[in-house]
Design a protein around this nucleic acid. Sequence first.
DNA 1: TTCTGGTTTTAAGGTTGTGTTAAGATGTGT
DNA 2: ACACATCTTAACACAACCTTAAAACCAGAA
Lengths: 233, 233
Amino acid sequence: MNNTLVLVVEDDVPVMNLMTTTLKTHEYRFLTAKSGTEAIMLASSHNPDVVFLDLGLPDIDGLEVIKRIRSWSNMPIIVISARSEDSDKIEALDLGADDYLTKPFSVEELLARLRVTVRRLSIMTASNDSALYINGKLKIDYSAMCAYIGDEELKLTPIEYKLLCLLAKNTGKVLTHTFITQNVWGRVSESDVASLRVFMVTLRKKLESSGDRNQYIQTHVGIGYRMLRVDEQ
Amino acid sequence: MNNTLVLVVEDDVPVMNLMTTTLKTHEYRFLTAKSGTEAIMLASSHNPDVVFLDLGLPDIDGLEVIKRIRSWSNMPIIVISARSEDSDKIEALDLGADDYLTKPFSVEELLARLRVTVRRLSIMTASNDSALYINGKLKIDYSAMCAYIGDEELKLTPIEYKLLCLLAKNTGKVLTHTFITQNVWGRVSESDVASLRVFMVTLRKKLESSGDRNQYIQTHVGIGYRMLRVDEQ
DNA sequence: TTCTGGTTTTAAGGTTGTGTTAAGATGTGT
DNA sequence: ACACATCTTAACACAACCTTAAAACCAGAA
């Protein structure tokens, strides 16, 4: 079973079908978008592992889609385009695309390049992430998606958990409001910052439960929040 | 100045020259190998950032070179080959190549794909590293958005922090009042210069806390301010 | 010395940002 | 449809921060 989630952005229905059936037969999970705005929304809300992006979209230019996604994420983007000029390739690659295939493309090559990308992702995550995060009494088991204070499991909602992980993975760094909302909600609107504040309250309360009086999360006025490394106690 | 080291593996001298002169003009550092065995030796001894690999080599098959390198390293390998069959591409990519260009290739595209690879490398390493400014006891961790005197963290307000960074990034240079206010407030009004003075007071006070008697910030009457480089003490 | 222009320092509003609560909206599973 | 959990939104008190003004200070020049 393959767990990779691919976002396919393509407005031409036959091509789209070709890609999705290919992905399906090779047991990839996938999402589809027929326009740039839809693509950006899905990319932010579902955080796919890879994006297949056609440049010729009905609404926004594909290059603009790359730019928007790159403003908040480094997710791999494989461009699949009918434009075969060198200048098009170079522009897309320099804007942040990871690969560029020209139509008509070979399905087998597409799959091979997808495998390259997935392989690279696994190398990156394997080397950087460890499954267990420990800071003071706080523990996070990423693979189990659980957090603990001491031995007691925290009952966190999905957003609270995401928020805690984001802070934990950046322990010591100040994260701006917009960075946080982009990574948690995948968008930035004023109201998200208000929500963020509410979540910080509940998250802090839960962290302080079980009599743990450590100050894990620090506020930076006008900027954002930071998770502190805490001494054992 | 570009610090990326590229290993170019190619037995055809004209093509080799094309690549090396291209790399030279774009200020990449590079090594060259004309055979598979030489390539493997150089790859292991110099640990290049990227490998350009021609598949048609006199001694070992290029695919074998990929296999050997992948047995101990994940360094990016960009294959450049005369074989344009899909099956060749797929085999190379599945053996561990990161990209595949067919000859004759566009120099500009090669450079663009090199930039993609370098960018990806920097993303992988940048996540943990933090850009650090050090001057006497003063430290600024830009990625964490924190400043320290010795080991003690300074509690700076947003404007104070911006101001300190601006001065630090221009250590040794005198910055005019208007330059500073433009960069901190994004506008220039008379009152901002008054505010600037107040901020200089508080900033200096915070820098002098913890008994650090270094004079970091110098006043230039009628002009502006300057951050001085300070001796260790 | 006194004056002058620029700077430092202090302190008092005024503005903005944050924590907190609670009610309403949304979603999910039964 | 219902109950339940979760999320969003709005409101408000409080804290942090910024601006402004005014006084003290410190040259150098008359």
